[in-house]
Amino acid sequence: MLKQIWRGRSGYLFILPKFALFIVFVFIPILWSFLVSFQEYRVFDTVWVGLDNFRDAFSDDIFWMAVQNTLRYAVVVMPSTVIIALILASLINPLRRSAQTFFRAAFYLPTVASTVVLSMVWRWIFQTRFGLANYFLASLGLEPINWLHSSEWAMRSVITMAVLTPPGMGVILYLAAMSSIPDSLYEAATIDGANRLVQWWRITLPLLKPTTLYLMIVSTIGSFQVFDQVMLMTQGGPGYATTTIVHRIYQTAFRDFQFGYAGAMSMLLFFAIIVLALIQSRLVTSDVEYKG
């Protein structure tokens, strides 16, 4: 064992700088949050409360509504982010260089503005009286919808925003990965008489697996932690129709000063995402390596 460690020393050295930063600025804070989830955190007289915070979470009706809302969001947004990115990248990749450059920019640039600004724009789009969405419906002769202010539509509106905002990161990542696939593989396939679609299915898709896994996990994390859009577009309402888990965590921590309870909900969310990520990494085994 020691021998193996010694032989792998350069491996450790390469990760050391990152790992050191990680321990100080990520791991220690997480450890604090973990410990706090077993406490009632107070400035002067913190008390240990065992599993009380977790018990509170299970009996908190708002938390359960938040879980349901988050699931509703994630079930649509998580796969659609990955699939849309894959479709767009696959459509862009065979194009001429200049066209590639143009479309890559067109799909990435909309994401450069901060979520704050984008949410603001979408709030205008969904505005009941003058918004673009209802203007569009009216021009089709349809009844206006109270997008952000009815329980039925509020979450759908938030989801619509997420789906219609192009997954810029996914597109450029897939394109980067596609650009690294050696041409020789396609040339061989062409000689074998496989058409484009077959090549895409047999060569491109399997070789994109590591990227797909990455995007699946990252978009799972992103959609389970949805917060900014909700905070800015609906503030969790109407009622609790768009209250998400992280929205609840944020309110609990900074408004109600219940850091222990917020920590406990975070740990539950953490375990839920871990389980999903593990399932995903089983489904998409990513051990592929190009043979040029």
Binding site: G8, I30, F227
Partner: peptide, 26 residues
């Protein structure tokens, strides 16, 4: 190749799953 490679890697990655908001205070 080195012992603990997968463990360290997934330890680091798993921390992405904690919402950043709770880490502001620590």
């Amino acid at each position: 190749q080195f012992p603990g490679r997968e463990f360290i890697f997934w330890l680091m990655i798993s921390t992405m799953m904690i919402p950043g908001q709770v880490l502001l205070v620590p």
